[in-house]
Amino acid sequence: MINFNGDLLPSTSFFLNQENRGLRYGDALFETIRVVNSKIFFWEEHYLRLMASMRILRMDIPMDFTMEYLESEIKKTLEANTMEDKAVRVRLGVHREGGGLYLPESGSVAYIIETRELDSPFYMLGGEPYTVELFKDHWVNSGLLSTLKTNNRLINVLASVYAEENGYENCLLINEKKNVVEAINGNIFLVRGNIIKTPPQEDGCINGILRKQLLKILSKLEEYTVEEASVSPFELQKADELFITNTITGIRPVTNYRKKQFRTDISRDLLGKLNMHVRLEGGK
Protein backbone atom coordinates (compact mmCIF):
# COMPACT_ATOMS: atom_id res chain seq x y z
CA MET A 1 0.00 0.00 0.00
CA ILE A 2 1.06 3.57 -0.65
CA ASN A 3 -0.19 6.78 0.90
CA PHE A 4 -1.29 9.46 -1.55
CA ASN A 5 -2.45 12.63 0.17
CA GLY A 6 -3.70 10.64 3.15
CA ASP A 7 -5.50 7.97 1.09
CA LEU A 8 -4.15 4.42 1.23
CA LEU A 9 -4.00 2.85 -2.24
CA PRO A 10 -2.65 -0.43 -3.62
CA SER A 11 0.93 -0.03 -4.85
CA THR A 12 -0.24 -1.05 -8.32
CA SER A 13 -2.66 1.90 -8.53
CA PHE A 14 -2.43 4.40 -11.39
CA PHE A 15 -3.03 7.60 -9.47
CA LEU A 16 -0.80 10.10 -11.32
CA ASN A 17 -1.36 11.47 -14.80
CA GLN A 18 0.68 13.13 -17.55
CA GLU A 19 0.28 16.53 -15.86
CA ASN A 20 2.41 15.53 -12.86
CA ARG A 21 5.03 18.24 -12.48
CA GLY A 22 7.49 15.92 -10.78
CA LEU A 23 7.46 13.81 -13.95
CA ARG A 24 7.40 16.72 -16.37
CA TYR A 25 9.92 19.08 -14.82
CA GLY A 26 11.39 17.41 -11.75
CA ASP A 27 9.30 19.88 -9.73
CA ALA A 28 9.43 17.67 -6.65
CA LEU A 29 11.36 16.85 -3.48
CA PHE A 30 11.82 13.67 -1.47
CA GLU A 31 13.08 12.44 1.88
CA THR A 32 14.45 8.93 2.33
CA ILE A 33 13.88 7.93 5.93
CA ARG A 34 14.91 4.97 8.07
CA VAL A 35 12.27 3.60 10.44
CA VAL A 36 12.79 0.73 12.89
CA ASN A 37 9.92 -0.65 14.99
CA SER A 38 7.91 2.48 14.09
CA LYS A 39 10.70 4.71 15.43
CA ILE A 40 11.53 7.30 12.77
CA PHE A 41 15.25 8.04 12.76
CA PHE A 42 16.13 11.75 12.90
CA TRP A 43 12.56 12.74 12.10
CA GLU A 44 12.92 16.37 13.19
CA GLU A 45 15.95 16.86 10.93
CA HIS A 46 14.15 15.27 7.97
CA TYR A 47 11.07 17.41 8.53
CA LEU A 48 13.01 20.67 8.88
CA ARG A 49 15.04 19.91 5.75
CA LEU A 50 11.85 19.20 3.80
CA MET A 51 10.21 22.43 4.96
CA ALA A 52 13.32 24.49 4.14
CA SER A 53 13.56 22.88 0.69
CA MET A 54 9.89 23.56 -0.04
CA ARG A 55 10.41 27.22 0.82
CA ILE A 56 13.44 27.44 -1.46
CA LEU A 57 11.37 25.96 -4.31
CA ARG A 58 8.52 28.37 -3.48
CA MET A 59 6.04 25.61 -2.82
CA ASP A 60 3.02 26.37 -0.66
CA ILE A 61 3.23 24.57 2.68
CA PRO A 62 -0.26 23.39 3.76
CA MET A 63 -1.35 24.39 7.25
CA ASP A 64 -1.70 20.74 8.27
CA PHE A 65 1.82 19.84 7.09
CA THR A 66 3.06 19.64 10.68
CA MET A 67 5.64 17.22 12.07
CA GLU A 68 2.88 15.43 13.95
CA TYR A 69 0.63 15.07 10.91
CA LEU A 70 3.30 13.70 8.56
CA GLU A 71 4.61 11.38 11.29
CA SER A 72 1.11 9.98 11.76
CA GLU A 73 0.74 9.48 8.00
CA ILE A 74 4.05 7.61 7.85
CA LYS A 75 2.97 5.35 10.71
CA LYS A 76 -0.44 4.84 9.10
CA THR A 77 1.31 3.64 5.96
CA LEU A 78 3.55 1.29 7.96
CA GLU A 79 0.51 -0.18 9.66
CA ALA A 80 -1.28 -0.68 6.34
CA ASN A 81 1.73 -2.70 5.16
CA THR A 82 2.11 -4.60 8.48
CA MET A 83 5.58 -3.10 8.95
CA GLU A 84 5.18 -1.60 12.43
CA ASP A 85 7.73 -4.04 13.92
CA LYS A 86 10.23 -4.06 11.05
CA ALA A 87 13.16 -2.06 9.71
CA VAL A 88 11.80 -0.01 6.83
CA ARG A 89 12.95 2.43 4.19
CA VAL A 90 10.33 5.16 3.79
CA ARG A 91 10.23 7.55 0.85
CA LEU A 92 8.23 10.71 1.45
CA GLY A 93 7.84 12.59 -1.83
CA VAL A 94 6.31 16.02 -2.29
CA HIS A 95 5.47 17.43 -5.73
CA ARG A 96 3.81 20.60 -6.91
CA GLU A 97 0.29 20.00 -8.17
CA GLY A 98 -0.22 19.65 -11.93
CA GLY A 99 -0.96 22.49 -14.30
CA GLY A 100 1.01 25.11 -16.18
CA LEU A 101 4.14 24.89 -18.27
CA TYR A 102 7.41 26.00 -16.68
CA LEU A 103 5.31 28.51 -14.75
CA PRO A 104 3.10 26.56 -12.30
CA GLU A 105 -0.58 27.38 -12.15
CA SER A 106 -0.36 27.17 -8.35
CA GLY A 107 2.09 26.41 -5.59
CA SER A 108 -0.11 23.77 -3.92
CA VAL A 109 1.44 20.36 -3.31
CA ALA A 110 0.63 16.67 -3.02
CA TYR A 111 2.58 13.96 -1.22
CA ILE A 112 3.30 10.25 -1.62
CA ILE A 113 4.57 7.88 1.09
CA GLU A 114 6.12 4.55 0.06
CA THR A 115 7.67 1.78 2.17
CA ARG A 116 10.19 -0.99 1.60
CA GLU A 117 11.51 -3.48 4.15
CA LEU A 118 15.22 -3.35 5.10
CA ASP A 119 17.48 -6.28 5.95
CA SER A 120 18.62 -5.16 9.39
CA PRO A 121 17.45 -2.84 12.18
CA PHE A 122 21.08 -1.85 12.79
CA TYR A 123 23.63 -0.01 10.71
CA MET A 124 25.96 -2.75 9.50
CA LEU A 125 29.47 -2.55 8.03
CA GLY A 126 29.75 -4.58 4.85
CA GLY A 127 32.92 -6.64 4.59
CA GLU A 128 32.91 -7.18 0.85
CA PRO A 129 35.10 -5.18 -1.56
CA TYR A 130 33.68 -1.79 -2.53
CA THR A 131 35.36 -0.06 -5.45
CA VAL A 132 34.63 3.46 -6.68
CA GLU A 133 35.70 5.60 -9.63
CA LEU A 134 35.28 9.22 -10.63
CA PHE A 135 32.35 10.00 -12.91
CA LYS A 136 33.58 12.73 -15.24
CA ASP A 137 31.03 12.75 -18.06
CA HIS A 138 28.87 15.35 -16.29
CA TRP A 139 29.23 17.39 -13.13
CA VAL A 140 27.21 18.69 -10.21
CA ASN A 141 26.79 22.47 -10.17
CA SER A 142 27.98 24.01 -6.94
CA GLY A 143 25.32 26.09 -5.24
CA LEU A 144 22.13 25.89 -3.21
CA LEU A 145 19.90 23.89 -5.58
CA SER A 146 22.35 20.98 -5.69
CA THR A 147 22.14 20.59 -1.91
CA LEU A 148 18.39 19.84 -2.10
CA LYS A 149 16.91 16.34 -2.51
CA THR A 150 14.93 17.14 -5.63
CA ASN A 151 13.77 14.70 -8.33
CA ASN A 152 16.44 16.15 -10.65
CA ARG A 153 18.80 13.18 -10.26
CA LEU A 154 19.83 12.52 -13.87
CA ILE A 155 23.56 12.75 -13.08
CA ASN A 156 23.12 10.13 -10.34
CA VAL A 157 21.26 7.88 -12.80
CA LEU A 158 23.95 8.18 -15.46
CA ALA A 159 26.72 7.63 -12.91
CA SER A 160 24.91 4.50 -11.69
CA VAL A 161 24.73 3.15 -15.24
CA TYR A 162 28.42 3.95 -15.74
CA ALA A 163 29.33 2.14 -12.52
CA GLU A 164 27.28 -0.92 -13.51
CA GLU A 165 28.78 -1.05 -16.99
CA ASN A 166 32.34 -0.84 -15.67
CA GLY A 167 32.15 -3.08 -12.61
CA TYR A 168 32.25 -0.42 -9.88
CA GLU A 169 30.08 -0.41 -6.77
CA ASN A 170 29.75 3.39 -6.80
CA CYS A 171 31.01 6.56 -8.43
CA LEU A 172 32.20 9.86 -7.03
CA LEU A 173 30.68 12.98 -8.55
CA ILE A 174 32.60 16.19 -9.24
CA ASN A 175 31.51 19.81 -9.64
CA GLU A 176 32.38 22.35 -12.33
CA LYS A 177 35.56 23.21 -10.41
CA LYS A 178 36.65 19.55 -10.64
CA ASN A 179 36.34 19.07 -6.88
CA VAL A 180 34.94 15.81 -5.56
CA VAL A 181 31.47 16.53 -4.16
CA GLU A 182 29.74 13.28 -3.14
CA ALA A 183 28.97 9.70 -4.13
CA ILE A 184 25.97 8.63 -6.18
CA ASN A 185 23.92 7.90 -3.07
CA GLY A 186 25.54 9.77 -0.20
CA ASN A 187 28.08 12.17 1.23
CA ILE A 188 31.77 11.33 1.37
CA PHE A 189 34.38 11.57 4.11
CA LEU A 190 38.15 11.21 3.72
CA VAL A 191 40.49 10.19 6.54
CA ARG A 192 44.17 11.03 6.63
CA GLY A 193 45.88 10.52 9.95
CA ASN A 194 43.56 12.01 12.56
CA ILE A 195 41.99 14.47 10.10
CA ILE A 196 38.52 13.67 8.75
CA LYS A 197 37.48 15.81 5.82
CA THR A 198 34.20 16.22 3.97
CA PRO A 199 33.22 18.59 1.12
CA PRO A 200 31.30 21.73 2.15
CA GLN A 201 27.74 22.33 1.02
CA GLU A 202 28.98 25.31 -1.00
CA ASP A 203 30.61 22.80 -3.36
CA GLY A 204 27.20 21.31 -4.18
CA CYS A 205 26.95 18.24 -1.95
CA ILE A 206 23.58 17.07 -0.66
CA ASN A 207 22.65 18.48 2.73
CA GLY A 208 22.70 14.96 4.15
CA ILE A 209 20.97 14.05 7.39
CA LEU A 210 23.54 11.37 8.25
CA ARG A 211 26.35 13.77 7.31
CA LYS A 212 24.99 16.21 9.88
CA GLN A 213 24.71 13.51 12.54
CA LEU A 214 28.24 12.26 11.95
CA LEU A 215 29.64 15.80 12.16
CA LYS A 216 27.83 16.13 15.47
CA ILE A 217 29.42 12.91 16.73
CA LEU A 218 32.90 13.92 15.52
CA SER A 219 32.67 17.34 17.19
CA LYS A 220 32.67 15.54 20.56
CA LEU A 221 35.68 13.31 19.81
CA GLU A 222 39.01 14.86 20.76
CA GLU A 223 41.04 12.29 18.82
CA TYR A 224 39.85 13.61 15.43
CA THR A 225 40.07 16.96 13.66
CA VAL A 226 37.19 17.66 11.28
CA GLU A 227 37.46 19.81 8.16
CA GLU A 228 34.68 20.92 5.82
CA ALA A 229 36.74 21.87 2.78
CA SER A 230 36.94 21.21 -0.95
CA VAL A 231 38.35 17.83 -1.93
CA SER A 232 40.62 17.48 -4.94
CA PRO A 233 40.68 14.14 -6.82
CA PHE A 234 44.40 13.97 -6.03
CA GLU A 235 43.58 13.75 -2.33
CA LEU A 236 41.78 10.44 -2.85
CA GLN A 237 45.09 8.70 -3.54
CA LYS A 238 46.60 10.11 -0.34
CA ALA A 239 43.74 9.23 2.01
CA ASP A 240 43.99 6.41 4.54
CA GLU A 241 40.25 5.80 4.45
CA LEU A 242 37.27 6.87 2.39
CA PHE A 243 33.65 6.25 3.32
CA ILE A 244 30.15 7.14 2.16
CA THR A 245 27.25 8.08 4.42
CA ASN A 246 23.48 8.11 4.01
CA THR A 247 20.49 7.62 6.28
CA ILE A 248 19.65 4.13 5.04
CA THR A 249 23.05 2.38 5.07
CA GLY A 250 24.83 4.53 7.67
CA ILE A 251 28.54 4.28 6.89
CA ARG A 252 29.76 2.43 3.79
CA PRO A 253 33.58 2.07 3.68
CA VAL A 254 35.26 2.25 0.29
CA THR A 255 37.97 -0.39 -0.12
CA ASN A 256 39.45 0.54 -3.50
CA TYR A 257 39.90 3.53 -5.79
CA ARG A 258 42.04 2.76 -8.84
CA LYS A 259 45.28 1.30 -7.42
CA LYS A 260 44.65 2.66 -3.94
CA GLN A 261 43.43 0.28 -1.22
CA PHE A 262 41.88 1.87 1.86
CA ARG A 263 41.75 0.77 5.48
CA THR A 264 38.44 0.60 7.36
CA ASP A 265 39.53 0.96 11.01
CA ILE A 266 38.04 4.41 11.65
CA SER A 267 34.90 3.56 9.68
CA ARG A 268 34.31 0.62 12.01
CA ASP A 269 34.93 2.76 15.08
CA LEU A 270 32.55 5.46 13.89
CA LEU A 271 29.85 2.93 12.97
CA GLY A 272 29.72 1.73 16.56
CA LYS A 273 29.42 5.31 17.77
CA LEU A 274 26.72 5.98 15.17
CA ASN A 275 24.59 3.03 16.34
CA MET A 276 24.90 4.29 19.92
CA HIS A 277 23.97 7.81 18.78
CA VAL A 278 20.89 6.44 17.01
CA ARG A 279 19.73 4.64 20.14
CA LEU A 280 20.08 7.83 22.17
CA GLU A 281 18.88 10.47 19.70
CA GLY A 282 17.57 8.88 16.51
CA GLY A 283 13.91 9.05 17.36
CA LYS A 284 13.88 12.56 18.78
Rank of each mutant, 00 (worst) to 15 (best):
V109Q: 07
V109E: 05
A110F: 09
T115P: 05
R116N: 08
R116Y: 12
E117T: 02
E117Q: 06
L118Q: 08
D119F: 15
S120W: 12
S120M: 13
S120A: 13
F122A: 10
Y123G: 07
L125M: 13
G126E: 15
G127S: 13
E128A: 15
E128D: 14
P129W: 15
P129H: 15
Y130P: 02
T131A: 11
V132L: 02
L134N: 05
L134A: 11
K136F: 07
V140F: 04
S142Y: 04
S142K: 05
G143R: 01
L144D: 00
L144N: 00
L145S: 09
L148K: 00
T150Q: 00
T150A: 05
N151K: 02
R153F: 15
R153A: 14
L154K: 04
I155E: 06
V157T: 12
V157S: 05
V157M: 08
V157D: 01
A159I: 03
E165A: 09
N166H: 09
G167Y: 11
Y168E: 10
Y168I: 10
N170E: 15
N170Q: 14
N170H: 12
L172E: 12
L173F: 15
N175F: 12
E176M: 15
K177W: 12
E182C: 11
A183D: 06
A183R: 06
I184R: 06
N187P: 02
N187T: 06
L190R: 03
G193D: 06
N194M: 07
K197R: 13
K197E: 07
P200M: 14
P200I: 13
E202V: 13
D203W: 03
G204K: 01
G204V: 07
C205T: 10
I206A: 01
N207I: 06
G208D: 03
K212P: 00
L214N: 02
L215T: 04
L215N: 10
I217C: 01
L218G: 00
L221G: 11
L221M: 13
E222Q: 13
E223C: 06
T225N: 05
E227R: 05
E228L: 05
A229M: 01
S232D: 08
P233Y: 02
F234L: 04
Q237F: 08
Q237I: 04
Q237W: 07
